[in-house]
């Protein structure tokens, strides 16, 4: 398998624009932005050039932290940013197209912002040991 190497690097939210600019200068394509709700919020920005994929990881403690939008650098990022805003409730500042929460029309606002329900496996119930003689 000659799959491109994937690298993960964690950066601070303030350095996001700078890092995106560097990716743009290197000729990368924005592949996707993924938000995960763990105990904190984790955003992964993926950039790809031929033979490499780079993922920039940004961790923010809660959804009230506003992030800068990279749509001034990558024009197509507004779709991902609006999606993350609508599903996770994270605010992006300076989006080139801002749907104000009307991109995904979900019944509940920010439906995916709740932490994982089954983060740890439920302890297996012990097999019922018959204590008495079956009658």
């Amino acid at each position: 398998m000659n799959a491109p190497a994937q690298t993960y690097s964690e950066i601070a939210p303030e350095r996001l624009l700078e890092a995106a600019n560097a990716q743009r200068a290197a000729g990368s394509r924005l592949v996707q932005i993924c938000c995960s709700r763990l105990q904190h919020f984790e955003l992964l920005y993926s950039f790809s050039r031929p033979h490499t994929i780079e993922h920039l990881r940004i961790c923010i403690p809660d959804s009230r932290v506003a992030l800068p939008s990279i749509s001034s650098i990558y024009g197509g990022s507004f779709a991902y940013e609006n999606e993350i805003h609508d599903l996770y409730g994270i605010t992006f500042t300076g989006m080139n197209v801002d749907y104000q929460g009307h991109f995904f029309r979900t019944a509940i606002p920010a439906p995916m912002a709740v932490p994982p329900v089954c983060a740890a496996p439920a302890p297996k119930p012990n097999k019922p040991q018959p204590q008495k003689e079956p009658t």
């Binding site: 040991q129 204590q131 079956p134």
Partner: peptide, 12 residues
């Protein structure tokens, strides 16, 4: 289930 002696722990 087969009847077991009462002293032995009943197996599953």
């Amino acid at each position: 289930p087969k009847p077991k002696p009462a002293a032995a722990p009943a197996p599953t």
